[in-house]
Design a protein around this nucleic acid. Structure first.
Lengths: 337, 337
DNA sequence: ATAGGTTGTCGAAGCGCTTCGACTGCTTTT
DNA sequence: AAAAGCAGTCGAAGCGCTTCGACAACCTAT
């Protein structure tokens, strides 16, 4: 293993000079810099991470806490994680992968040991138990998701409330009056995950303003669960012509079931999904959808975090505006029979 | 921030004693140990990760390199990643998330800087450019996937060749003669990803032994691509009654298209999928499938790695035996018309 | 009783880096 | 021409921990 001292000796300068060449924190003459850089290359020098962390008390690591539940759409999580890792690298940071499993302890451990300089938390619940710790520790952090109380916290999220409103507006404009919302699995609501509740609220409020009727049903993914849920919905509100689907894994089953029952999409019923664009275009009917900008969320989170680390920013909530793309699954409501 | 020295002072012992209490590397009297542990708790001490890494030259971090491509089934990646993180934590290790993007440079960086003690590589290609570096660096590592040359490497993977054979055997036993294989996206074959090629080889060899005809077609996911692929297959081999699907995102489209064409599953055609069990049971027809044991793969990888770090193991290839579960998508071949 | 082991503890020497103050020659200002 | 400033470099002091050798104090065998 090559050390700073060896590079210094090879280049004929002192260790501190090499350090300053590396960090750029003091001016170095062009000739010296070149010589040092040459030595670094020749010897294949890599600064030792531990020594660096010890001396500077900065690890250049960002901790990312991902949920290990699988009841939410996993590819979105993965996309966010990858965006976080990629963006972090662009800024010279590495990413430590923490699972939600450890819970608050992980926050304590990472904060206390100086393992990471900052944290990103995903899958934030409205009343998340990690938040008091985070506030108390003074650890720079960004939440992906919106808890109930955001004082002193930096949060990045899709504006789910606006997302819900947008879906219902689209259907209203097309003349639909009875809307059914296929929600996430019941467990998601039970643990008060912000995005699910906010979507529903935003949707309901706008629906009321527009004079639409809304029926909301949580739904596990898969065909069997969807079949039961759909049957109940059509039983209770036979006139339902618009569907908003938030649970990605219910989308395809819904389309298949509707087809099977002879209800044409979009002639008889319209479907609006809340899902990544890639899913929307790969479905059996190209779906009118509000996209989930996972990469943006990851990227923003890292950028906010680094701004905070550099003292360029403080607690703040960033809500990304939702965008609805009209595709082939929504159309004018059928004339009332 | 509380330091070792402060704990030592509080407990009335020397710093080294506290260190030995923590590591258990020398015997400590019960009374002293208790006193030290008490002080640690009272002061809320957490060892500093950087200092530890510097002094011991072990970071207790495992680097996990995940592909950032999205042309392969993402949830499997995520499941592996989560299993890796969870297992690693159980052994006192943290996980650093590296994206494939950096490629060989990441290996150099992590190896050189002592950031991580070991690496796990996913999405290994048959002739992976990271391998020479890995061999050269002496960095302990485990591959999830099987390259062409495994000398000196530790690898964990599903036995894809046996998987392919298993699928074809099942269909043969049911009396099918003409088999079509819906493969991964062409790009996956082009970059010589081991698992795709091995599956195909295993399947073909066994098919020849059993006297079956096999037609293989790579296929992007989604309805449109699948429609084209299916049309071509049925055009070339109208008598095809058995399908083996490796590309997860082609499965549902295939089922929908067959249904649409009036071919009943499993009465007219049988479908065997290679996918996680969860996907198999959630599909519109409960799929006969060979499962992908993602959590096992992650867990094994970490356990091998830790064994290597502790000098309890050397390079070795672990192939997990595939298991086929019969569900509702496969049945006896229809009588020849 | 004495040589030889154990057991439990301490002190000190680093691990490889960052960073602060100090110093040397210059160039600029007055 | 002296004072002041600046660019460029160095030496040394740590950062908080692990680990090695040393050394008491005690226990066992002869």
């Amino acid at each position: 293993m090559v050390t700073l001292a060896e590079v210094a000796q090879h280049a004929g300068v002192s260790a501190s000079t090499v350090s300053y060449v590396l960090s750029g924190k003091r001016s170095i003459s062009a000739t010296t810099r070149l010589r040092v850089e040459q030595s670094i290359r020749e010897l294949g020098y890599h600064p030792n991470a531990g020594a660096r962390a010890l001396a500077s008390s900065r690890s250049n690591i960002i901790a990312l806490m991902v949920p290990l539940r699988t009841d939410m759409y996993v590819p979105v999580m993965m996309e966010i994680a990858i965006a976080v890792a990629t963006t972090a690298r662009m800024h010279g940071y590495d990413v430590l992968l923490l699972t939600g499993e450890e819970g608050p302890d992980a926050v304590r451990r990472v904060t206390g040991s100086g393992l990471a300089d900052a944290m990103i938390l995903m899958d934030v619940q409205l009343d998340d138990e990690r938040l008091p710790l985070l506030r108390g520790s003074g650890q720079p952090s960004v939440l992906i998701g919106l808890p109930a109380d955001t004082t002193g916290l930096t949060c990045v999220d899709l504006d789910w409330s606006a997302t819900g409103a947008l879906c219902v507006e689209h259907l209203a404009k097309l003349g639909h009056h009875d809307i059914a919302v296929i929600g996430e699995a019941p467990a998601v609501y039970e643990r008060h995950t912000g995005f699910a509740e906010r979507t529903l609220d935003g949707l309901r409020v706008r629906a009321r303003e527009l004079g639409l009727r809304v029926l909301h049903r949580p739904c596990e993914g898969g065909y069997d669960a969807m079949a039961v849920t759909l049957a109940r919905i059509l039983d209770e509100r036979p006139g339902t012509t618009g569907f908003v689907v938030q649970n990605e894994s219910a989308v395809e089953p819904l389309l298949a079931l509707l087809r099977q029952q002879g209800r044409a999409v979009p002639e008889d019923v319209s479907v609006v999904a809340i899902c990544p664009d890639q899913v929307a275009v790969q479905a059996s009917v190209r779906l009118t959808s509000v996209g989930i900008p996972a990469p943006d969320m990851g990227r923003y989170a890292v950028e906010r975090l680094i701004a905070t680390l550099e003292g360029r920013a403080a607690g703040e909530v960033v809500l990304l505006a939702p965008e609805l793309t009209v595709r082939a699954s929504s159309g004018p409501a059928p004339a009332a029979s």
